[in-house]
């Protein structure tokens, strides 16, 4: 098991490592202008500097804080709403067209109005994250509830479960695998949205870090930032979201 995981990680990292090797060869051989693309040592240096002077931590911390808050708020509102839609055809019929419409806009289309409502910075960006996660989690929760066999709801009711117990004991756990998938997908979009939003609407965060470096032709900072953005997402996804999704599906998912 352990050795298979290590092997899996290696096969995942190998192509990325190869890319770095090619980059390390191509830049000096063709004497690429550092204002077009930086060398490997320059990027490493930029990385070391940003770690030592604390700016990396500051930007990552700001970005992560927004992501966590936006996601938590979105899930807290989306899950009960999705469950309500899942059990009530009336609510579902009413809200589905609205969700369809707004899910298209979810993400950076909201930035202009969000900055008017919340001002530049924290609020506007959290709002963008919220939007990216919210709709997809509502939709997946709804889907999750609809996959719960009617017999499970009937069983709970005839064992004496009231409305609240039905929610906490059957609907919520029953929809959990789909909720996990929704959070994972939604966060994937929100992460992209976050970087875009931070370029426009704030003065701290990973997106801002890239954008400012551009003004000074610091391609090594830009590339380092891009590497951080990609790596952070892969870590969040592979170490947190994917295992959570897999665990719920393995334990729960036998109904389907």
């Amino acid at each position: 098991m352990v050795s298979r995981r290590i092997l899996g990680t290696m096969t995942f990292i190998a192509p990325l490592a190869l890319l770095v090797v090619i980059w390390g060869i191509v830049v000096p051989v063709f004497q690429v202008n550092p204002q077009i693309f930086p060398s490997v040592p320059a990027v490493v240096q930029a990385g070391v500097n940003s770690i030592l002077n604390g700016t990396l931590l500051m930007h990552v911390g700001a970005s992560m804080g927004r992501v966590v808050l936006g996601t938590v708020l979105a899930v807290l509102v989306a899950v009960p709403l999705g469950i309500l839609m899942g059990i009530s055809k009336g609510v579902s019929d009413f809200l589905t067209p609205l969700l369809r419409f707004f899910s298209v806009l979810a993400g950076i289309a909201w930035i202009p109005i969000a900055t008017l409502w919340f001002g530049y910075g924290f609020g506007a960006i959290v709002f963008v994250i919220f939007n990216g996660v919210f709709f997809i989690v509502v939709y997946n929760t709804l889907l999750g509830v609809s996959t719960i066999p009617m017999s499970l709801r009937n069983a709970a009711a005839s064992l004496g479960a009231g409305r609240w117990a039905l929610f906490t004991e059957v609907l919520l756990p029953g929809a959990l695998p789909n909720i996990a998938t929704g959070v994972r997908t939604g966060l994937g979009f929100a992460w992209r949205g976050l970087i875009a939003a931070e370029m426009i609407a704030t003065n701290v965060g990973l997106g801002y870090m890239l954008f400012v470096a551009r003004d000074f032709y610091q391609t090594e900072v830009i590339v380092f930032g891009m590497i951080v953005i990609g790596t952070l997402w892969l870590l969040i996804d592979r170490l947190l979201l994917a295992p959570f999704e897999r665990a719920t599906i393995e334990r729960w998912g036998l109904v389907r």
Binding site: L152, A155, L176, R251, W252, V255
Partner: peptide, 9 residues
């Protein structure tokens, strides 16, 4: 129930 209807979680 014919389908058992046990709570899988």
């Amino acid at each position: 129930f014919q389908s058992f209807a046990l709570f899988p979680w």
